[in-house]
């Protein structure tokens, strides 16, 4: 029999609490909501998220706050949860600042920042349901979308 039965009963709980505190930030970073999936890929391309940069792969997830970058021979295409499709030509860089698609609660946002490169956008449900919530910023101006397909080229 243990001389300290009360501690025995408390310790596992305390351990659980510590585990919860530790798990929250890491768990969120690793399992953040998938907002899009890489569907096409050629050459060098990377996804820079909150952790280390990872090589892009077909089927790979992208999350809010990720930056997607292609090398000089790279090209890549993504499909988002609202059916937006986006493709990048070589030497391109875009950050997904905010992607929210929650039709049940009426929450929508698609905000992306282009740094450089060539892009093709085909907008999805967010541009239809809440056009004001979709904006692409570039170093030379902001693009607002009214349900459409368009191309963007930004020189470095």
């Amino acid at each position: 029999m243990s001389p300290f039965p009360r501690y025995r009963s408390i310790l596992p709980l305390a351990g659980f609490a510590v585990a919860l505190v530790l798990a929250a930030p890491f768990g969120m970073a690793e399992e953040g909501l998938r907002v899009g999936t890489i569907k096409t890929l050629r050459g060098e391309a990377r996804v820079l998220g909150s952790g280390a940069a990872r090589a892009a792969a077909i089927g790979g997830a992208v999350h809010q706050d990720d930056t997607i970058e292609t090398g000089k021979d790279g090209a890549l295409g993504l499909t988002f949860i609202d059916d937006t499709t986006l493709s990048l030509g070589p030497n391109s860089r875009i950050r997904l600042s905010k992607v929210v698609f929650d039709p049940d609660k009426g929450n929508f946002a698609f905000l992306a920042d282009i740094a450089r490169g060539t892009f093709m956008f085909v907008s999805g449900a967010i541009a239809k349901l809440a056009p004001q919530s979709e904006k692409i910023t570039t170093p030379v101006g902001t693009i607002g979308i009214r349900g459409t397909r368009f191309l963007v080229r930004i020189d470095e």
């Binding site: 101006g141 607002g144 459409t148 397909r149 191309l151």
Partner: peptide, 19 residues
Amino acid sequence: GNEIVLLPNPDGSPSAVVV
């Protein structure tokens, strides 16, 4: 070398972008 191009919708429906 900074350009934005509107492509036609496959179904011919009207669309626009605002820069």
